[in-house]
Structures are given as C-alpha cells and as structure tokens.
C-alpha cells in the first residue's frame, strides 16, 4: 500500500514538483486508484507469459545510411535559452 512518505518519494523520482495541496490530494487519490487496479490480483497469471507488444514482427531495422536532419535553426527554434548554438539550461544542480 502506498504510504504518505512514498507519494513524496515517487514525485521526486518522477520529477513532478507537487504543491502541498496536490500532495495531500494525491495521498488520498492514488491509493484508491491502486486498489482499483489491484482487482487484477484475482487473476491467476502464474503460467502466463507477458505481452509487451501486440505486433508479431521482429527485426525492424534500418540500413546504415545517413540522411537529412534538422537545420540548426530548426533544432533550436523551440528552446527557451540558446547561446552560441548551444541549448542552455540553468546550473546542473538546479536542472537535475
């Protein structure tokens, strides 16, 4: 079961900054949703293999050919901060 402390930790792992109001809302809500999905525990899946993808094909590979890419202007056009062709972000500790 999801404890209060865990909700905070998960928010940190997911890098979702939560205000105290949101945090308390999630503390109430998430356990309810988890109980809802835990209905699956009624299902015996012991000898069942998982299906991660529904397509049956394999080896969808690309030939090693280099082709067109974005112009630098296109690559940078949506970045908030740009300097000398680099995309800029705040100090690494802050950004991390």
């Amino acid at each position: 079961m999801l404890t209060k402390n865990e909700v905070g930790k998960i928010a940190e792992l997911a890098k979702i900054p939560l205000g105290s109001e949101e945090l308390s809302a999630f503390r109430l809500q998430l356990p309810k949703i988890i109980t809802f999905v835990e209905n699956l525990n009624k299902l015996d899946t012991k000898d069942i293999s998982p299906t991660f993808q529904v397509i049956s094909k394999k080896n969808e590979l690309r030939e090693d050919i280099s082709a067109e890419n974005l112009t630098r202007a296109q690559a940078l056009q949506n970045a908030k901060l740009v300097k000398d062709g680099y995309i800029k972000t705040k100090g690494v500790l802050d950004a991390k």
Partner: peptide
C-alpha cells in the same frame, strides 16, 4: 555512418553544436 536510432550522421567530431540532430 548514421546514429543508433535515426539517420543523422555519426561523424560528429568537432561539428558545430546541435548541427547533427533530428
């Protein structure tokens, strides 16, 4: 010749920043 999951050139040494991206 190209990158792992896209067809951008893999010849990146000393290229201008963000010039070989898609």
């Amino acid at each position: 010749k190209s990158k792992m999951f896209c067809s951008c050139s893999n010849d990146i040494w000393k290229k201008p920043p963000n010039s070989l991206v898609c």
